[in-house]
Design a protein around this nucleic acid. Structure first.
Ligand SMILES: [Mn+2]
Ligand SMILES: [Mn+2]
Ligand SMILES: [Mn+2]
Ligand SMILES: [Mn+2]
Lengths: 152, 152
DNA sequence: AACTAAATGTAGCCTAGGCTACACTTTGGC
DNA sequence: GCCAAAGTGTAGCCTAGGCTACATTTAGTT
């Protein structure tokens, strides 16, 4: 049996166990990587619903990025089967894309509503929801819904 | 006066005005870029408090990334004046780093508490807070505090 | 004190997501 | 119908943040 190295210091007491914490951080990283796709899907659905078209330039303007950046992300949406695009003709959502957009939109609304229900001013609620929404699990969403039903 | 191009389609009605929406997305992107630094600062502070040392390998294990990744991010912390490190001797926080860690830690706790107060189960609250915390503004934090004082 | 395992650091690779610059289509105003 | 302005697409650059592979240093056991 090879000699085992002694622990260099006593185990931490206040932190979550290592694997637990690592799993949490990992999930948060995953959520982050899908956040952008979610925002695009939601925005494209809104543009299609309200104006009939979702053009790269419109998308870029709404997001505050360059049109080149928008086009690249649209390419990722296509790669992941969420959107299609005909050159010079705008962007469309696949079924998967529409489903994602619907989920994201309802989640966005629910997050804003919950924030407002606990007393967050409108503009802050709208602002913070834009980031928060991507990290709200189904479990949490359910709790939000119940809370709003009871109060609100 | 050069001819101006007519709008290609009517303005959307349900979306926030363009500059507003772009500003929101931009802020969310900024929050995202500081999220990792916040998590590192918080974790390093916890490790220092509980064990006296914050070693790259410990940090990496806790975060669920390779030690090489942790070392690179620690380099960024140093670049941004949040941490110092003596080779083979661990990582330390500067005053700015400690201040950040303190803010982040209290915000983390407050977010978890609020989620639980509105009925989110513990584990989901802990999980989701890890991502949500980075998108909670001071305004929202204040509202959370008031809510918890009232209910809770 | 030597030896070996662990920790640490470095190098190099990849992808995502920003950007600017430039080329090519489309289209509205004349 | 022309043609300039707007929109679209492509290329090439950058940084952040992952990774693996390998080199170097430290330290526990003997
Ligand atoms: Mn969002
Ligand atoms: Mn949204
Ligand atoms: Mn976090
Ligand atoms: Mn945290």
């Amino acid at each position: 049996m090879p000699p085992t190295r002694a622990a260099r210091r006593p185990a931490a007491t206040e932190l979550p166990a290592e694997p637990t914490q690592a799993r949490r951080f990992g999930k948060a990283r995953t959520a982050q990587s899908t956040a952008l796709l979610e925002d695009y899907a939601e925005l494209i659905a809104d543009l299609l619903a309200s104006g009939g078209e979702a053009r790269p330039t419109d998308i870029a303007r709404r997001l505050g990025v360059s049109h080149a950046t928008a086009i690249k992300t649209i390419a990722r949406l296509k790669r992941e089967g969420l959107a299609t695009a005909r050159p010079y003709r705008g962007v469309f959502l696949t079924e998967a894309g529409e489903a994602l957009a619907a989920r994201v939109k309802s989640r966005h609304r629910l997050v804003v509503d919950l924030l407002r229900a606990v007393g967050v001013p409108s503009e802050a609620a709208e602002q913070d929801a834009e980031g928060i929404e991507h990290h709200v699990s189904d479990t949490t969403l359910l709790a939000f819904g119940r809370f709003l039903k009871a109060h609100g």
